[in-house]
């Protein structure tokens, strides 16, 4: 589904990603862990197409298409979804209006008819229940005045509405209390199918108790330095990132 080969990226001339290799297949859950500043969020931003980052080398193929040439909106329409670490507040744009526009532009891209009002409302009702998001929030401005937990739940709600092939969750666990974490994780798990894939970017192991990964990658200094199974996350939690840092230096 996703093939990243030797990906290098810079921001303001500074190289952050220094040769990432990663392959993700349908049905898989990958966790990317790493210390602060290792390039986790850069990787998610580059995949989603933020203009500030310049890809200097490498390729990213998504279902056979080179996505690096696509605009952010076309990447989304192809089925890539990024749940933001810091969801943006957009005063005056209602969640509903925003999602309807997003869904219809995506459908137009795929050559489909716009969604009917009835179908859309039924979907809103069903998907907001999935993350226990108060239906009143759906009518409010996007993220405006939402609590930290509500913002993260709103990200997963949007993900549910857009039904992506590949979801990248960028530190979705940060700032969540244990109840909110459980709700968000269970939402993600319910959306999992054999056809879609999830990338969980996180600093802490605790989210991975709820969203169990098939693979755990450790990102350090712009490269994936270690790949393992869920046990690797536990080992990291126990030994800390210094263990990896020392390992890398010694190697």
């Amino acid at each position: 589904m996703l093939k990243i080969k030797d990906l290098h990226a810079t921001i303001n001339g500074k190289e952050i990603l220094k040769g990432i290799h990663l392959e993700i297949k349908p049905g898989e859950v990958h966790a990317i862990m790493g210390p602060n500043g290792s390039g986790k969020s850069t990787l998610s931003s580059v995949l989603a197409g933020r203009e500030e980052y310049e890809v200097t080398k490498g390729t990213v193929e998504f279902n056979g298409k080179n996505i690096l040439d696509l605009s952010p909106e076309d990447r989304a329409r192809e089925g890539i979804f990024l749940a933001f670490q810091y969801p943006i507040e957009i005063p005056g744009v209602s969640n509903i209006n925003f999602l309807k526009t997003a869904i219809n532009e995506t459908r137009a891209y795929q050559g489909k008819e716009p969604i009917s009002a009835k179908e859309f409302l039924a979907m809103v009702k069903e998907k907001s229940a999935l993350v226990e998001l108060d239906s009143k929030l759906a009518n409010r401005s996007v993220n405006e005045g939402f609590s930290g937990g509500e913002k993260k739940r709103n990200e997963i709600f949007q993900m549910a509405m857009l039904n992506p092939k590949l979801a990248i969750l960028d530190e979705t666990d940060s700032g969540l209390d244990i109840d909110a974490l459980r709700i968000v994780a269970s939402g993600v798990n319910k959306l999992k199918t054999p056809k879609n894939a999830t990338v969980v970017i996180t600093h802490y192991q605790r989210l991975l108790d709820y969203i169990v990964p098939d693979f755990v990658h450790v990102l350090y200094n712009g490269k994936i330095v270690k790949t393992g199974t869920k046990e690797l996350a536990l080992e990291l939690e126990e030994k800390g990132y210094d263990w990896i840092k020392n390992d890398t230096i010694n190697a």
């Binding site: 989603a48 933020r50 989304a76 990024l82 933001f84 943006i88 957009i90 005063p91 997003a102 869904i103």
Partner: peptide, 25 residues
């Protein structure tokens, strides 16, 4: 720009994102 990118990342074209934002403002 960050808000525009947020809307784009949900599949909304840049021009429509701009329109949405200006109208909302």
């Amino acid at each position: 720009d960050v808000a525009i990118f947020y809307l784009q990342s949900r599949g909304i074209g840049k021009q429509s994102a701009l329109k949405l934002m200006i109208s909302a403002f």
